[in-house]
Amino acid sequence: MKLTIDVWRQASDETDGRFVSYTVDDAAAEMSLPELLDRLNSQLVEEGEDPIAFDTDCREGICGTCGITVDGIPHGPEPHTPMCRQHLRSFSDGAHIRMEPFRSSAFPVVRDLVVDRSAMDRVVASGGFVSVDAGTAPDADTRQIPFDMAERALDFSACIGCGACIAACPNGSSHLFTGSLLTHLATLPQGKPERGRRARGVVESAEEEFGPCSVYGECAEVCPAGIPLSAISAVNREAARAAVRRNRDD
């Protein structure tokens, strides 16, 4: 199939970017979006041009490294699917595809389609982890938890940290990401001793890095991990709980 691709080209955060149009004549329906970019890049290298920079790693939807905006939608047309698992069968032959980086103030463009998502790392570093019981893996039966609690924690820990929720949010908010982080750690016994301290640190950091939530619900629509929208309410819940239990770590 023949595709026309408008790709955002930007040398660095300091320079302005613009869309450049390319044509790929030998695209195939079973190609994924990174494979299309690979194909285009070999074409560009053959022609002596600079290849397009884009983030990609596992290409099986579990690492959260990839992420571009396709035709205005973070990751692309297929719902709940990371960019690396989006295929050209979603597009018709002769289609015009627009590819640009994830857009949000918190995500400065590094080059072309690559953005700096370290704002999310700073939120995690502000307490979004478990630092107690960090020795060797304990025996699986040491702490027994109900099955549905384990499932609930797993649902929210499915977040791959790609940042699509933030790119999709008209407010540039990270509530789906922050909420899933807080929920799964607050659900499991290992996370409970630091629950309050974690909420204070993570929410304060998230407010410094991202915007407020208006419950538009766009985030959950693009989330490749299928994090439920209820995650966003955890931000206010955990912050309020930590504020009421002022001096307590748990």
Partner: peptide
């Protein structure tokens, strides 16, 4: 206050419009 914070976080006047999935 929230509106101005949201505008800033989205990218202010420079923010490109996003197509809404919903």
């Amino acid at each position: 206050i929230l509106k101005s914070r949201a505008r800033r976080a989205r990218g202010g006047a420079r923010a490109p419009s996003i197509r809404r999935r919903r």
